[in-house]
Design a protein around this nucleic acid. Sequence first.
RNA 1: GGCGCUAUCGUCUAGGGGUUAGGACGUGAGAUUCUCAAUCUCAAAACCCGGGUUCGAUUCCCGGUAGCGCUACCA
Length: 491
Amino acid sequence: MPESNSSEAKTPRVRFAPSPTGYLHVGSARTFIFNWLYARHNHGTMVLRLDDTDVERNTDASVRSIFGGLRWLGLNWDEEYKQSERLALHRQQAEAIFAKGHAYRDFTPAHSADSDQSSAQGAWLSNPGMRELSREESDRRAAAGEPFALRYRVPRGEDRILRFVDGVYGAQTKLADEVEDFALLRSDGMPTYHLASCVDDADLRISHIIRGQDHLTNTFKHLLIFDALGAEAPQFAHLPLLVAPDGTKLSKRRHGPVVSVTTYRDAGFLPQAFVNFLCLLGWSPKNDREFLTLDELTAAFTLEGVNRANAVVNFTEDDPFDAKAVWLNAEHIRALPVEQLSPLLQPFLEQTGLQASPDKLLAVTPLIRERIKLLRDGASAADFFFLPQLAPYDPAELIPQKGDASLARRVLKHAQEVLTTTAFDHDSLDQALRAAAAQLGLKAGPMFQPIRVAVCGRKNAPPLFETMAVLGREVCLERIRQAEERLQSLG
RNA sequence: GGCGCUAUCGUCUAGGGGUUAGGACGUGAGAUUCUCAAUCUCAAAACCCGGGUUCGAUUCCCGGUAGCGCUACCA
């Protein structure tokens, strides 16, 4: 199997191999995206493999969270595997490696060696006792049922140098003497990550492994495993890590929910904006472009554009989202046709208890599109369109800058008269209200503010005429009447 | 500790032996506008330190420092 001529594959096969021990992490999401872009850019195959060999820590909730996150991103994959279903293959290959003499049984009880620091001084490189155990004794103890871990017999002596060329970091070398005899099989017979991962990568004929830089050093072990498997090692490309403002790797414990992609989804990020943002972390199209569609990203993506330094996701306690992510989201929201944006807004409005009919929301959407950065902002930006009754507001807001309550009253009174007869469309309202302002000897500002506050219940809102047209005559008139009442309280 | 990787505005980045070191976000100021937003203009803001190499280094080399990663019978 591993020696099958994988080199004849013309198109790349890449994989994303998350382990279901938590939710989908933004760093993992980026790794997935980069793999996907690489596959699509090169017309290759995207493989999704669940690396679930750690039975202790795997959870179904995590599996659901990961798939949910990936589905939300909207990037599909071509093949799907589950590592736990491939156990037989892993053991068989471990056996083959042992049979070829590339591994030995280590009968040292688990956790006995790592307790004291001094053991990390030199003995860790190899297990003098176990490495040299005769085959006969090894077989005998194994047959007697003594538990053992299977360890790779890393070549010692000479100046054996392990080398590979990383697609991002360039030529990498390491002395084999600096690689310890790492485990392939645990004493319970389960494969370790290194073994399972390499066996599967070889078996699935993965041509390019694109993963986080935290695996850069592990790659030497993997090279050794591919070698023992008799398989050609894939190409490797490591990605700089995503780190928090404190410089450390993003983690749930330290940094909270900001590291989960569901947090972005639930706040109302558009997946295309989120993808766009993540791509700009550690990769650059090198042409000063920031706003990129998925197609543009696919066309532009190359490993050469990947940076080598870790990238900071710039969030704070007050502000859980990187300002650039928010800005990009606003850009993508504005780029979306109203008919597409509107239904996306719907659940966010309903979440806050607003009853928004699709038709009305469609009419409202263009009025708030430029005023929201996240989809969830839609609720606060558009609430007054859907509230049957305006929330109480300070009547003082009805009074324009350089005016008093009586001016506000005059404006509202006059507006009522005008609005009773004019048609409720943008142009008619525009003409009628401007004319009304002129009659009162007022500029637009002082004229429109009392009306805006009366109709919207606040000072900052979308353009007045469009807003009133959507609200309709009845509602506007009623709200102005109520505003007059509120004004009474000011005497 | 050992090994490895990295180092340009606050953040994401472009660039590269001679440049006013470019862009974006954010920030500040202004313009426009019925408010807000959007848009436009302008501004402040960076080559980690020390040695080399060179006529000339932010760029190339070495060292230092700092950060990160690996160093598990976790992945």
